[in-house]
Design a protein around this nucleic acid. Structure first.
Length: 599
RNA sequence: GGUUCCGUAGCUCAGCUGGAUAGAGCAACAGCCUUCUAAGCUGUAGGUCAUGCGUUCGAACCGCAUCGGAAUCACCA
């Protein structure tokens, strides 16, 4: 009768049942008045009904109302086993047969946690690096968030396109190019042994060094700081290089291609290490001219206006924002122009239903303007643009500043995490019977699991703190703890198989209260995934998986599953362990975290 | 100054659209390895949810104000 409840949400079932009961007792009600929530741990019961909103209808005290509803339900709804009343709260306990049925559903459903296709197409843009320096900790948060959100949306049945818009042009890369040409002596990734992105980053720093020195020199000669910044020979030369690039000067273009090529090779290594990937890669060198036709359109519609110097603007002061430039006086485009153009083209080309930009919160204003401008141009899909804004990652000493060398390099960080995981494993003797290859693979998974979970468990919009010295914990609410729980379960199941204990097949029905708690948690999984998708928050999935792992450890650690006297109970426990491991794997996959079979 | 976001235990963070006595982990303290992996388990201690007022049966959550912190307000991307 209530088939496939796990996919539908048990609370809806209860809502329906409670609604009918209340109506039988007190007459029609509007659905808003019913509130159902999970019963808190300190109390007996599975779900709780808050009766306060119903008092007007029942015209009785909270206790009397709760008792009356409880009595009616236990008498008339077979799934309701018992109830108790505390103050105005009616705690309902569901029949263990009900939970058993839910468990059978989960066990039989190969696609558990995967919602049916919605037909919606969503693009998630993330990463979006500049090509003048290597990735750092801030990018790591961006990449992990973007990848995980894409996975979660996919699990919710949407078609997801992961996109990366690489900022491969501009003054920044010209700075690296110029410094390399001047001071590089023909150095290449192969000759220097440096990763391509690090090599290019090195020359970006080199440029800055010379630039600063020249400014200082000019200021010593009495030039003002502003003028010095503009007239330092090296920056003038870099700007000239950018002009040559735009004119497609063969030599400059070749240099640009070569150095960007090095950077991409370097990025690929980092992306692979992080486990992220993309379906589409866009390059700004190919999109930076987009958007000019939209500017024309805006002018014709009278949404934009032209100033005397021929630059184009939009006045958003009526909306509480400022005036914004859309086209320079010389007719060249700015950031906003391109973004309008790329947004337009993406919605057109891919028939997108939604577009999600994973971009740091320093661009909140930019996206506010972007959406508003599109709206004013009459594009209603503007409402389907979401800026998934995330806070900065701060270090204990304060903010990260690339100029001051206080950045945490992504590659160093990853290597450090893996090394720490390896040390920990060796110390504990966990991987003594493994081959070197296996041990290395597990250390990778654990080190990265720690890093990813640490970053993803924090609410994206919050500024978070990262302490590299203490590195990252491997105990408590961490990725490794969840991985550990999974590895333990796999080990139990291996040993059961070796001992010839049969735990597959028909699902047993003997439950202890602890096991029902676990079944309850398991059934919540699709709801957690859906909530995470709605809120663009991998942290919700993280919290869920951690809770599941913790409960499993708590309940099962001190009991022997394999040596249980009661064979039926043992079989049931093994089946439950198997499902827990399945859901852990599935949840961790949504976070982009690999789960080792042993550790 | 305008806009947006944040402020919860010593530290790092949860707390979904208002619901019961505020939740974890770390750090501290006390136990637990001849039983499935101790990267673990059990327990103790730790809070004026920045502050004040309001809304109501009921507020960490909603509204207003104040105080602290962050981002942004570029012919950079």
């Amino acid at each position: 009768m209530w088939a496939n409840l796990t996919l539908m949400n048990i609370e809806n079932f209860l809502l329906d049942v409670v609604c009918r009961s209340v109506e039988a007792l007190y007459g029609a009600l509007n659905g808003e008045q019913l509130q159902i929530q999970k019963t808190r741990k300190e109390f007996v019961g599975d779900y709780t009904i808050v009766t306060f909103p119903l008092l007007k209808m029942s015209r009785k005290s909270p206790e009397a109302t709760a008792t009356e509803i409880g009595e009616y339900m236990t008498a008339n709804i077979p799934e309701i086993q018992s109830f108790n009343v505390i103050k105005g709260f009616l705690n309902l306990t569901l029949d263990s047969a009900f939970w058993h049925a839910r468990f059978v559903e989960i066990a039989a459903d190969d696609a558990f946690g995967q919602a049916p296709a919605t037909g919606r197409t969503i693009m998630v843009e993330y990463s979006s690096p500049n090509t003048n320096k290597p990735l750092h900790l801030g990018h790591v948060r961006n990449n992990l968030l973007g990848y995980s959100v894409a996975q979660i949306l996919r699990a919710n049945g949407h078609k997801v396109i992961k996109a990366n818009l690489v900022n491969d042009r501009g003054i920044h890369i010209c700075k690296s190019m110029l410094a390399w040409k001047r001071f590089g002596g023909g150095e290449t990734p192969a000759s220097s042994g440096l990763k391509g992105d690090h090599l290019v980053g090195k020359y970006y720093v080199e440029f800055d060094k010379h630039y600063k020195a020249q400014i200082k020199e000019l200021m010593a000669q009495g030039v003002s700081e502003d003028d010095a910044k503009k007239s330092a020979p090296i920056i003038v030369e870099a700007q000239e290089m950018l002009r040559q690039w735009e004119a497609k000067d063969p030599e400059v273009y070749a240099l640009w291609q070569m150095m960007n090529g090095w950077v991409y090779e370097g990025f690929d290594v980092t992306y692979k290490a992080l486990g992220v990937d993309f379906d589409k890669i866009y390059y700004e060198s190919q999109t930076y001219l987009l958007g000019k036709s939209l500017v024309e359109e805006g002018l014709q519609k009278g949404v934009f206006y032209r100033r005397d110097d021929q630059s184009v603007w939009i006045d958003l002061t009526a909306d509480g924002l400022d005036e914004k430039l859309l086209l320079r006086a010389d007719g060249t485009s700015v950031y906003m122009t391109q973004d309008l153009g790329t947004a337009f083209r993406r919605f057109e080309d891919n028939k997108l239903d939604d577009m999600i930009y994973v971009v740091g919160n320093e661009q909140n204003y930019h996206f506010q303007v972007l959406k508003l401008v599109l709206k004013k141009l009459g594009y209603d899909w503007s409402d389907h643009i979401t800026h998934l804004s995330y806070g900065m990652v701060e270090l204990p000493e304060g903010k990260m500043k690339s100029r001051e060398g206080t950045v945490v390099d992504a590659d160093d960080l990853i290597a450090g995490m893996i090394a720490t995981a390896r040390e920990m494993s060796d110390e504990l003797g966990k991987l003594d019977d493994c081959t070197e290859e296996q041990a290395a693979a597990v250390s990778r998974m654990v080190g990265l699991g720690a890093l990813k979970y640490f970053i993803l468990k924090v609410d994206p919009k919050k500024t978070m703190l990262f302490d590299p010295r203490e590195s990252i914990d491997f105990n408590g609410n961490t990725g490794p703890f969840i991985q550990y729980t999974h590895a333990r379960i796999r080990s139990i199941l291996r040993k059961a198989a070796e001992a010839g204990i049969d735990y597959e097949g028909a699902v047993e029905t003997t439950y202890l209260p602890e096991e029902i708690d676990l079944v309850k948690l398991l059934t919540d999984y699709p709801g957690a995934v859906a909530a995470a998708g709605e809120n663009f928050a991998p942290s919700i999935v993280g919290a869920y998986v951690y809770e599941l792992a913790k409960q499993f450890n708590g309940y099962y650690h001190d009991h022997s599953i394999l040596k249980e006297e009661n064979v039926a109970c043992r079989k049931m426990r093994l089946q439950l362990a198997q499902q827990v491991s399945r859901v852990i794997c599935s949840g961790m996959q949504l976070l982009g975290i690999d789960v080792p079979e042993r550790m």
